[in-house]
């Protein structure tokens, strides 16, 4: 056994299209935006775009792990609405005893995180232990949470007490050093997610399971536990996103978080994660989220195309992203 081998290490190859594609698309979008509207690159607009991306972004990071491990979660949008409703109800109910102050906000946050964890664990339990298809389980829970929040709001809107809302607002609108809280939390989630995905055992196990469940099982990977953890983690991140979201409007209704699940999945796919699992990258997801929000932002800032066509343009981008990745794979 020699310590030195004659085998040469690979030269650093040029990044492939699947790596460059999303980055190039983002650069093109920024260039288009900047050329069409001088306010585009202003601090106010950038903050606005990032803060709005944060909700979907935080959820999409969790979704990256679920999809990488060969799963799917359609329930996240409804889950966010349900958690928001629950948070508002609990905080309003606790108002007489706790009064307006930090404790009641912390209580609300705790409720959101626990509800998210419970919802994620429930999805994960049904999918792993009972072995029901992820698509079916989360399609079901999507309907359940959406219906529950409608029922809790009695078909209308659940509003946070006015005094409480004023106290909670800074969580969305303030920050440190001019960077608002949602952006800071988003950045932390992304950094943690990227490390977990690319450098930690958990990420490696997720990719192995998504690539082949059997091989993972025979390689001493606890398939069910790892999958369960991806759903639980996604649930908690939905809770985190909701904590950031509630102070923005201070209310929840049947239309809260509508289609967030599709935006999150789209961001993950645009970012280069493989839909059928086996390969995922968190930084790609971030680029995917930014691409989707920038399209929205550019259409709103300019009168080039009607903002009503936003969905159509996003749809084209999603399909294009997958085609580009497939070509890259065929060549590589």
């Amino acid at each position: 056994m020699t310590t030195e081998t004659t085998n040469t290490r690979p030269r650093r190859a040029l990044p492939s299209m699947s790596v460059l594609g999303p980055i190039l698309a983002l650069i093109v979008l920024v260039a288009i935006g900047a050329s069409l509207n001088s306010n585009f690159l202003g601090a106010a607009n950038i903050t606005n775009v990032l803060a709005r991306s944060a909700f979907i972004g935080i959820i999409a990071v969790g979704m990256t792990f679920v999809i990488t491990a060969g799963g799917l979660d359609l329930s996240v949008g409804s889950m966010a609405a349900f958690i928001a409703g629950l948070m508002i109800l609990v905080m309003n109910a606790a108002l007489p005893t706790l009064g307006v102050g930090v404790p009641i906000i912390l209580l609300g946050m705790l409720v959101a995180l626990l509800a998210g964890l419970a919802a994620g664990l429930l999805n994960g339990f049904l999918i792993t232990t009972l072995g029901i298809e992820a698509f079916i389980v989360t399609l079901g829970s999507m309907g359940i949470y959406r219906s529950l929040v409608t029922w809790l709001a009695d078909g209308g809107t659940l509003s946070l007490d006015f005094g409480l809302r004023t106290f909670y607002r800074p969580v969305y609108f303030d920050g440190i050093l001019g960077i608002s809280w949602p952006i800071i939390v988003f950045a932390l989630v992304v950094i943690g997610g990227e490390i977990l995905m690319s450098r930690a055992r958990f990420g490696r196990h997720c990719a192995a399971i998504g690539s082949s469940e059997h091989v993972a099982h025979y390689s001493n990977v606890n398939v069910n536990r790892t999958r369960l953890l991806t759903y639980a983690m996604l649930g908690v991140l939905v809770g985190v996103a909701t904590i950031m979201y509630v102070p923005r409007l201070g209310s929840a209704s049947a239309s809260t978080g509508l289609l967030w699940e599709l935006e999150a999945i789209a961001a993950v796919i645009i970012g280069g994660t493989v839909l059928k699992g086996g390969f995922g990258r968190v930084w790609g997801t971030v680029i995917g989220v930014l691409i989707l929000s920038l399209i929205d932002n550019i259409l709103n800032l300019t009168d080039l195309v009607s903002p009503y066509l936003n969905g159509a343009i996003q749809g084209v981008i999603i399909i294009l992203a997958v085609i580009l990745q497939r070509e890259a794979k065929a060549k590589g």
């Binding site: 490696r204 196990h205 192995a208 082949s212 059997h214 390689s219 001493n220 390969f279």
Partner: peptide, 21 residues
Amino acid sequence: KLRGLLLDKPMWENLTLQSLE
């Protein structure tokens, strides 16, 4: 092929999968 190796992954990822700890 079905239980032993991740065919889409490079060698190092397969080699260490069972003993990542």
